[in-house]
Design a protein around this nucleic acid. Structure first.
Lengths: 203, 203
DNA sequence: GCCCACTGGATAGTGGCACTACCGAATATA
DNA sequence: TATATTCGGTAGTGCCACTATCCAGTGGGC
């Protein structure tokens, strides 16, 4: 495939493809001469991945690059790789925010580890909820956690049957890409419940 | 409170506070003379809300403004208000994306309504998942939906006991601000499950 | 064999966003 | 009275994600 065909197939302008290559997010094509290079399906897939992360997740390109690097070169353990992926995902928060999550996490019976990005993310989220005057306490937290555990367990289970390298890539991308699915389904569920109430307010 | 005190109390520079007032996101203080105005706790609360939406949710200011306007002046029905709030939240997608959600939504036994923003958001999310080569089918969808319904129902229930105006404001802010909580808890759950597997791989 | 659209590779420029700096006139404050 | 601070406004800054332009060098169609 030539670059113009790659552009046509992906819907991304040639200039942008060149830009991604300069930034090191997309490998260069196999040079066949001074003025031509060959691109394959892997380039197309990578481009689609960049689009998915950049457009749907609205990630800054620097974060997209981190995730792509992680998929290409996982850390030593799955745990460490996932930790880094989580840090590349919004919200981008400061470590001190972790403190706001301490009570909640301990009340839930989990281990409070400020090194892990998700802990600081939870802290920042709780701070935002409370800053807006919305409710947050241990009881509410456990009402959220139980169903979320179900979801998370269902997501981790299939990874067991994969070769480790695939599992890591899948976990990193899954963490990032199923999130908007979950949020959209929640919003749909809200809508549906509200609609039912309107049709049958006695419920 | 003078503007410098408001700045001190909120941690936001005076220049930025002025900027928010110019943009119509923050009401001007009560003018007491040509060179002084008085700010109250409502200004401080509004500022915290702007921060929560802008920093933690990383919303563009234009979207923050939409949500604030919605809280101040709800639409005719709670359903319509929530619909507009959903449209102000990321991901920002095109209506045609709704098509990608059609099969899923119908398989789940829900009504496919491309007018509703969450439908297009789900479509875009599904497109991203599939574009990255991850799994998406009706069975997986229903595995996500069931626990999410539990969460959504628990969120809507307390609104019944509120005065309608409060309920709408709460629903709009809750839709926006509990999302990062849910995502952070999911990531924590992943981490916890992985950690358990590492300690006891036979599980 | 000739022409020209296209290529890889590079540099510079654009537009949008969210501030941030500075200004002048007026007015609190010491 | 001298100094600091305020309001309200205009203009400038820095970052980001492209986008435009350029150049020398092909490859494909006639």
């Amino acid at each position: 495939m030539r670059i113009s065909e790659l552009s046509l197939a992906s819907g991304i302008p040639v200039a942008s493809i060149k830009f991604y290559m300069r930034e090191g997010m997309l490998p260069r094509g196999a040079s066949t001469s001074a003025t031509s290079a060959d691109y394959g399906d892997d380039h197309l897939a990578r481009l689609r991945l960049i689009q998915a992360l950049s457009e749907v997740r609205a990630l800054p390109l620097a974060r997209v690059k981190e995730i792509l690097d992680l998929v290409d070169h996982p850390a030593d353990t799955a745990y460490a790789t996932l930790g880094r992926a989580v840090n590349a995902l919004p919200p981008y928060v400061e470590q001190p925010d972790a403190e706001y999550a301490r009570d909640t996490i301990e009340a839930l019976g989990l281990t409070w580890d400020p090194e892990y990005g998700a802990v600081a993310q939870l802290g920042a989220a709780i701070r935002a909820v409370q800053g807006a005057g919305l409710r947050w306490d241990a009881e509410l937290a456990s009402h959220y956690l139980a169903p979320i555990r179900t979801i998370a367990a269902g997501e981790i289970a299939p990874l067991e049957d994969m070769p480790p390298a695939d599992a890591v890539a899948h976990a990193v991308l899954g963490t990032a890409l199923y999130e908007p699915v979950i949020l959209a389904l929640r919003r749909l569920a809200h809508q549906q419940i509200l609609a039912e109430r309107i049709l049958d307010p006695s419920a």
